[in-house]
Design a protein around this nucleic acid. Structure first.
Lengths: 224, 224
DNA sequence: AAAAACAACTTAGTACACAATCTGACCCAG
DNA sequence: CTGGGTCAGATTGTGTACTAAGTTGTTTTT
């Protein structure tokens, strides 16, 4: 058993991780009793983790019935991206206006980490994680913790994370360009530019995801 | 004991209500043991309520130490209103563009309820509640549940709720005018107008609250 | 007298047992 | 065959005892 703080915290992190990585697909039932066996801790901390995941939107929950991994309709996806257009734009603007020199270096480093790793199948999991980290870092740099937290709830989603898996080489290349341009804008303290490129990035990802969901893009990476 | 669903839900609603109405002021300790005595239910559902309030930001929490009602610094207030400028604007715009006829009537009714009640001290509690309801209704009309929920977390705050208590007659009159104009804009399907007046309203409230916090406005209503 | 160590107390963290509730299957009547 | 009612099983909801962690006040040592 991991000792990362309390058992409840560990359970929370583990379940969340499994959801994000699609090991627990949308609709999967999360029975408290089963989780007791799997995680080796009692129901109390497990319940706590599940309730937290519920408030944060990762799972849906019906009283006296149970918990299951949240499902996302096409309308949900559209709503989420419509919000991200605004929130990512605002976050990027604030980051450009407020980021300190060491923070800008940090952002550069996060970008570098992604650029250095070739886009081949065996790296996708790692690149997906780095991509998420990059976006969360921009959120931090905005200096608005509430804004960053709200946006995080729209980014840490299974289907967003999975998007990278479906990217073709040129799609990944475009995404990297967006990131690089955002870093550039932030380093220039140019809020308008940062907002514009962030907005473009979101719209571009949305368009890709739409096509991907419609089955127009072959899923290139299937786990065994 | 209230039968509003589960004990955990009842505890959540009661504690939240007390926080919003400032019976539990910022910094107040929420000991699980005490709440057991006060609410007459066991620690398990109380813990669940406290953890939920923590995730939603109403209380702060330190592992192995305890829970207390969240405190808000001036910077927090500024951040919250900066976000509301955007979110309330967007909510109002969407409500204007998407609200159906029955929904517009509902909004009108909510406005009417406020207009009909004279702004005298003994009505302030009621008017405060109606004011909150009105704003939450606009959120619903936006047709974007996630957006509405995010914004709700920035509106259901003790100091926001208390603002109405500090209003002078002309300040309340101005607030009512804003509300009426918003209803008008929504009924005209004018997104730009709705957004503009909603933004104005938020900025106006922020300015008032700033003065109020600085002690430039006498608090006209002190409970015993 | 100041600082460090310790011990007693307070509070949260966890486990587990039992109660309340829901689901779905089965049976019976129409 | 169909509809509804009932019962068994499973699953969540709650209460409570015990454990572990942290805080504070006191004592001891330098």
């Amino acid at each position: 058993m991991a000792k990362h703080g309390s058992n409840a915290q560990a359970a929370y992190e583990l379940i969340k991780k499994r959801i994000l990585e699609d090991e627990l697909p949308p609709g999967a039932k999360l029975r408290e009793g089963e989780l007791v066996d799997v995680l080796g801790i009692s129901r109390t901390p497990i319940r706590e983790a599940l309730r937290r995941l519920h408030v944060e939107g990762f799972v849906s929950f019906s009283p006296n019935v149970g918990t299951e991994v949240a499902r996302y309709s096409d309308d949900d996806v559209d709503e989420i991206f419509a919000l991200r257009v605004d929130l990512d734009g605002k976050v990027a603007r604030l980051a450009a206006l407020r980021a300190s020199e060491p923070q800008r270096e940090q952002l550069n480093a996060a970008l570098d980490a992604m650029v250095r790793i070739p886009f081949v199948p065996e790296n996708r999991e790692r690149l997906t994680a780095l991509n998420l980290e990059f976006h969360l870092l921009v959120g931090e740099l905005s200096g608005s913790p509430r804004l960053a937290r709200m946006r995080a709830g729209l980014i840490e989603l299974p289907f967003v994370r999975q998007t990278v898996r479906t990217y073709t080489d040129p799609a990944w290349e475009r995404s990297l360009q967006h990131h690089a341009e955002l870093v550039d804008a932030v380093c220039q303290h140019d809020g308008d530019w940062a907002q514009a490129i962030a907005t473009s990035h979101v719209l571009s990802v949305h368009a890709w995801l739409r096509r991907s969901r419609a089955g127009q893009v072959p899923d290139t990476d299937h786990r065994p």
